[in-house]
Amino acid sequence: MNLQPQQPATPLVQPDKTHQILEYKHTRPLISCCWDSKSRYVFFGAEDNIIHRYEVASKNVVPLQAHDSWVRAMGVTPDGETVLTAGYDGRLVTWDMKDVSKAKRVVDAHIGWARALAISPDGKQVATCGNDQFVKLWDIAEGRLIREFSGHQSHVYYVAFTADGKQLLSCDLKGHLKLWSIEEPDRKTDVVKAEALTKYDTTFRADIGGARSMATNADGSILAMAGITNVSNAFAGVGEVAVVLVDWQKSKITQTLESKDKTRGTAWGVAYHPDGFWLAVTAGSGGWLYFWKGDIAHEFFKLKLKSDGRGMSLSPDNRQVAVAHADNHLRLYDMNA
């Protein structure tokens, strides 16, 4: 399969020109970030139980407080009206963009950590997943649980909608990627096991792995799962960054993207750029932005960052990247000169 769908006649960006354009220093290390759909704000989570809304133009920061633990999962509906967050307290919180001073709705969505959320293409539903091994589908307007999907046998690390919004893809700690039909909840498919992204460390007697981030390409046919591979010491984080590409309709792993120089660490964020490349942010060896063309295992460009990157979000215009850094900073990078 061609992993580089139709590229624009004129590329939007020049990855090798990527450079930092802005940084904001917070009081605690950051763990996640997300652009809003209008490019006005970047939301970020930190090691402080609070979500922060950073307004790019004014640099004004507003706290969103309704969680009782760290928040790594967040998203904004396509219309830009609603913010959704899910945290390690298991809560799914809905916020009205016009007034984020208080939560619009708080739902106890998962027992244990809620690790990720995904908003449906029509903006009406949100899927969550967590350590209780469930994937759950919610109605955003009503906060109602529509359906829950059981079948994973370890913590569910990430969830994504397919492009048509009719199915969900979820990956767990042990690398199992499952496909769920929203209309027919009993119909589930074990897509693949991403062996590269999981390991039981027999020395330390624990599992490490899972997709720390997932994204699909332009036509939705390829799913990227970011994580850590070749782990030789789970408890010291001795492993290498990797992104596994899956043709989920064919249940086939098409490529494993790695670093040329075996960069130590974990890929915590991945995105597909309409210019036809994948980008990912990593942590574990000081932080890097990697750029891959999907048909080649090694990167065509990488950028050293000031600090480990724990989350990444591509701007709606696909020209900038926001990165949540471990050194307390939110940084924005522009991919043009």
Partner: peptide, 11 residues
Amino acid sequence: NYDTHHENFDF
């Protein structure tokens, strides 16, 4: 084992 220099919370 609890020697969690990496991902202490998950482990």
